[in-house]
Design a protein around this nucleic acid. Structure first.
Lengths: 211, 211
DNA sequence: CTTTTTCCTTGACCCAGATCAAATCATGCC
DNA sequence: GGCATGATTTGATCTGGGTCAAGGAAAAAG
């Protein structure tokens, strides 16, 4: 009933519109949910990190294309048995509701980012989000000097942020030039002061994560 | 345990950060959830129409400001008894999960709208969304000639779409000039051909609502 | 080691939508 | 009616980020 699947960076895990006979959770690595307009414009609409849930119980057709942005390992369950288990286990349903509500909150922060933030603020916010989620896995809060791995291409970042890859590149290098971040290679970011980065992100100062 | 509350257009129902000791659902009218950056930039992150749920079980502090965009009637429950009921009624929890997943899907369509659509496409998409939701309440699909009520100011529309109110006004009048929509007063829109409006919205032709 | 491919950076230019500034319209109030 | 008040439209101008076009850099392939 439970099994593992691995994908390499760039591989498509599920195509939007395909039959989807499993649900799963991310063990390691990263994947993006994307939506497209027919002319090819692409927007990432979900970012899956370790512990995140993939799939929608009660729905057999995938609504979004899921692509591995880095090497990734999923822990999968066949959908039918999972749904049976879900119906029999109120605790599991509650946990899933909790996770879905958290995802909805994250999506709403993302709406604010896409609708109202400048390119510079978008980049800073994205790094803040990654740092927070990376720290949260270790039950911590990011603070002071902090390093973040970017398991995405500039293009994937652009699709996340509603920008072009050129703008992402320019803003990353501007932030670097101004000392807000340091780059170690192209995919590793050092944040000298997490607090300063939060200011750049335009967020309300307290940033209160409620849970 | 159950009671009704009414608000006039423009009234704030809940302030972000306030204690929130009730949950509710919309009986009639419309409200918006909004988030703000400290410099005042505002983004609507949720739109509540009749039958929509307000509040988050298990959370006593409101994360978003809720404002009535039109006269509105809510059916409210005190939070504690509701949570008790929720814990005792697996069916209710399942229903709530279903609604939350639908909201998440809507939020993801909204991400695509904010991240990648032009102002014209945003306006058209918004009208398509309103028409679909209005029709859905009558268990129908919008088709052919269709009328939509806009219980929002141009500014509220701008906050929904990540635009300025001037751009909203201009695009509405451009669509009117081109015959894609007709305006009856400022708050009522006639859609001569729903199918043509969907094309203007940039959506994938089929538009498949999966449920 | 060389070549190919993929990803990233940088520059020059342009345009959709923002900003600033006036009108116009609609509605309620005295 | 005459006069505030708030919503909307319209015009003029500006600009952030998009688009187009080369180049680099680094990994993968041969």
């Amino acid at each position: 009933m439970k099994y593992y699947r691995s994908f390499e960076a760039g591989q498509v895990i599920v195509w939007a519109g395909d039959q989807m006979d499993f649900v799963g959770s991310v063990v390691s690595g990263m994947a993006g949910l994307t939506q497209q307009l027919e002319d090819g414009r692409t927007q990432m609409v979900g970012l899956l990190l370790p512990s995140d849930f993939l799939g929608r119980p009660g729905r057999q057709i995938a609504s979004y294309t899921v692509t591995a942005t880095s090497e990734i390992v999923l822990c999968c369950f066949r959908r039918k048995p999972f749904e049976k288990l879900l119906a029999e286990t109120p605790h599991l349903a509650g946990r899933l509701l909790e996770m879905t509500l958290d995802e909805l909150d994250a999506a709403r922060d993302w709406l604010l980012l896409l609708g109202r933030k400048s390119a510079r603020e978008k980049i800073a916010s994205f790094l803040v989000i990654l740092a927070r989620r990376e720290a949260a896995l270790a039950r911590q809060r990011p603070k002071g000097r902090f390093a973040v791995e970017l398991p995405l291409t500039r293009e994937a970042m652009a699709d996340y942020l509603g920008l072009t890859l050129e703008t992402v590149s320019r803003q990353m290098n501007t932030l670097k030039r101004e000392g807000v971040i340091e780059l170690e290679g192209k995919r590793r970011v050092i944040i000298p002061s997490f607090e300063d980065l939060v200011i750049e992100s335009g967020e309300d100062s307290d940033g209160g994560l409620p849970s």
